[in-house]
Design a protein around this nucleic acid. Structure first.
Lengths: 249, 249
DNA sequence: GGGTGATCTATTGCATACAATGAGTGCAGG
DNA sequence: CCTGCACTCATTGTATGCAATAGATCACCC
């Protein structure tokens, strides 16, 4: 969802700023002033301004009363909320695919994901390559599901959601170390759910597909919860964790 | 979802531009150049630029390859998609309320909506005041439902959706003239659904509440379809209709 | 006559100067 | 010593100048 041509200052500044935010460079509540940012990113205030406006629409920063922006603080509740909405929307996508019948090519791509996941997961112990392969497959799987459903509004909504830290499918797995036995158990469960989901879609079982996709995100929610509990250990691996306060009202 | 203080040029230009777009001032595909707009709105290019960026994020205009923006064209399919997603999300909101139990005050407010709707609808023939009252109530009802569910991500997603023409709850009713008998029948059905929905929430029936809210938007979809069929008659009342092309793939 | 090239113009992207507003600080008075 | 006011400074909002680029138009050659 970039704004202009990839060579422009705008997009460069936007990408860099978003990257810095997601790497936890700014503390929650910290003011993001234009001039320091423009010096740091070696651009004028104009593209910085536009990038800040974009980031506000993405929900990563929020406007201050007197003008300007500050880094947003995410509560654990908000992250959980976003994951829950993702479950409902991906559930809808799965249901639509099952009800309408998925195109042959899409089913082939999903099958390829399943096989790649099998290879990574069906081992006594997964190494880092297996882990990376699984993560790449997982992203592709969810992307295929959403894009394949064909509902443009749903695609847009999920793209927005995925901009939130830890809400995206891609952000939920890497919290557990690949060597962690419990983490591997969760990944195996998640992959069994992938299999079941593709089976449901193939057989046109809309309600089952929806329920499976919805349940699937519960793993993500548990991962976030456990990451928040061990926030001290995670700080190095997941710097964006500092954006999330553990307060759950 | 305005960006800055209400007195600024930015917000004024943004509101005016959004209003013009939704009033159908620009034809689909028409280029929105900065200089003519800034002259027309009596502001410099800077606030116009920022407003255009905002409108792009809202999905009302789209960027052109060489820079700049053009008016977006909506297909009937996209409108239908957006309404379907709204149904799923409002269904989720209703389910959450039913499952978690809604606060006393919220239930009182919803009851007030029901009574106001009863007064407007339980008549042999509705006049324009009844119609206006119902429309205001309808907006409030849906707003209460969504805001009341307490899921921040869901609220955000629905706010985005409601920015799309004809996707919002507020945009679906006025297509039928108040004097139209068939239109009144649909409004009575819709209001019966409101009653059933509140009943389901009160009794903690999550699945029923969700199904009712989801079914509820089917009326909106039918209204849009019928408006598209009679596009010629609607052109005067609903100028934004020209943004929607009837192509349904 | 058609196609290709060059020039020309309109429009955006970027930078910066200027104005306005709000916050923070210091001083004075009670 | 505390409070209130005024002043200063920092930061954003706005306007505009300049450069680069894409598209269109026109002329010229094949």
């Amino acid at each position: 969802m970039q704004t202009q041509s990839p060579q422009s200052q705008q997009s460069r500044v936007l990408v860099q700023l978003r990257d810095m935010i997601l790497k936890g460079v700014f503390a929650p509540g910290e003011r993001l002033a234009e001039i320091p940012l423009s010096e740091r990113l070696e651009a004028s205030r104009t593209p910085v301004r536009l990038a800040l406006a974009t980031l506000q629409h993405e929900g990563l920063i929020e406007p201050l009363a007197g003008g300007g922006y500050q880094m947003r603080r995410f509560t654990a509740q908000e992250v959980s909320d976003a994951i829950e909405v993702r479950g409902v929307l991906e559930g809808m996508a799965a249901r639509l695919l099952a009800e309408r019948g998925a195109p042959r090519q899409l089913m082939r791509d999903l099958q390829a994901c399943l096989e790649q996941g099998d290879e990574a997961v069906d081992k006594p112990t997964m190494d880092l390559d297996d882990y990376a392969s699984y993560q790449e497959m997982n992203n592709r799987f969810h992307e295929l599901l959403v894009q394949g459903c064909g509902n443009s509004a749903l695609i847009r909504s999920l793209e927005t959601l995925n901009g939130q830290p830890f809400a995206a499918a891609s952000a939920t797995l890497p919290m557990q170390s690949a060597r962690d036995e419990e983490g591997q158990r969760w990944m195996r469960l998640a992959h069994r759910q992938h299999h079941a989901l593709v089976d449901a879609i193939t057989r046109g079982q809309g309600a089952r597909a929806q329920a499976l996709a919805q349940e699937h995100v519960e793993i993500a929610r548990m991962n976030v919860d456990s990451a928040l509990e061990h926030a001290d250990k995670m700080a190095g691996l997941m710097p964006a964790m500092r954006l999330v306060s553990a307060n759950r009202p």
